[in-house]
Design a protein around this nucleic acid. Sequence first.
DNA 1: GGCCAAAATTGATCTGGGTCAATCGCATTT
DNA 2: AAATGCGATTGACCCAGATCAATTTTGGCC
Lengths: 237, 237
Amino acid sequence: MKPSVVTIEPNGHFCSDCGVRGSAVCSSLDAAELREFEHLGRRVHFSSGETVFSEEDITTSFYNVLDGVMRLYKLLPDGRRQIVGFALPGDFLGMNLSGRHNFSADAIGAVTVCQFAKAPFGRFIEDRPQLLRRINELAIRELSQARDHMVLLGRRSADEKVAAFLLGWRERLLALKGPSDTVPLPMSRQDIADYLGLTIETVSRTFTKLERHGAIEIIHGGISLLDPARVEALAAA
Amino acid sequence: MKPSVVTIEPNGHFCSDCGVRGSAVCSSLDAAELREFEHLGRRVHFSSGETVFSEEDITTSFYNVLDGVMRLYKLLPDGRRQIVGFALPGDFLGMNLSGRHNFSADAIGAVTVCQFAKAPFGRFIEDRPQLLRRINELAIRELSQARDHMVLLGRRSADEKVAAFLLGWRERLLALKGPSDTVPLPMSRQDIADYLGLTIETVSRTFTKLERHGAIEIIHGGISLLDPARVEALAAA
DNA sequence: GGCCAAAATTGATCTGGGTCAATCGCATTT
DNA sequence: AAATGCGATTGACCCAGATCAATTTTGGCC
């Protein structure tokens, strides 16, 4: 998907009533700082499938996800793809040492981000260690998730991968949408396969198997967890 | 391997002539800060196979690797192991949000670390944003490595995994020991297998295959890269 | 040097998940 | 409502890498 026209809201928003105020990178700022911060970011909308940034791009901006879901992925030269994560509201993207994004990110469905130009954002952090500390926390949390995912990719069976994915995804949505056994899956089967190191066919077959066993029900745009305990047992935590 | 008696040097060292002074977390400190910092850490030695900390342990210390190699790993309840990384001199271990180490670490061969009690170290960081920034850099670098490793685990063949491992390991040693086509491999075949998401047999066979093709020579305690270009081609970067 | 245990290699066989190939089920478009 | 087209499902078959099973090599240690 090539980037197309995006909608930019010139400045009709306030950080103070932003949906991710409490959980995002900006949760470390007080009211006074927030008013200054407000001028650094601009809301940008992306529609389904649009690429927000690419692996080889030079980093000119950081992004704070406000709404929607993004897939973060790396490609091998021959086209094989590994999705390294899904970004949700509150996630902060763009930190790197090389000066280039080291993965690509595109929108799954409509996405709104808060975009910060790199230089001014860097200057703003400079004398605000609280913000740096918050960014560090987010990085450490991601690192922990990354290590968990390595275990999944390297050492789990297809059944375990799929079961762990469903539970993990539900867990992430819990913080955003509250508890529910109905788990929306906005990403495609191909996305799930590329996240789990499987093929689309294996994901599909595993879903069907879980449904036949009464553990889940496949519904439009997601699944329903009929027997969470059984799925947890399969995930073999 | 169970922890046994470790040797602690009461205080016969100086940060200023520490081997990792330039690359580790302490590279962000000036000479004055360094003298204060010196009192926070103590050198601790571990012998081959000893566990430095375990996954479920409550974090009471941070560690700066000074010498030697460590394996960092997570275990599944049934004993399957995934090595999430190897730590080398200059690496900083122990950061987490949960208050517990989320992986285990043990010594491969003799290891020396600089150990910091969590609370005093935290206090020392408090008013030194440079140090925090350095820690953040290290975390971001690790995150990038973690994502690369996810691609390897999820989307590469056994041959590609082994070839990429040999090149990646050589690359890491380059910064420490200078360039060389002789690559020491202090870790066991089992460690390599658990790092690459393979079995020990597959690692062994792949080494043998690479040797038969004249790409490498298996030597005592490591390999020699006879044909780096060919290995790079196999790694399919 | 000789003995023992652990690590590594090699071979034979098996299988989980990949590959290839239809088919199905929708949502759009005409 | 027929045509289109894409994502998802299902089936048949295959193969890379796992498993099982011997050796062989290496490294202490008396």
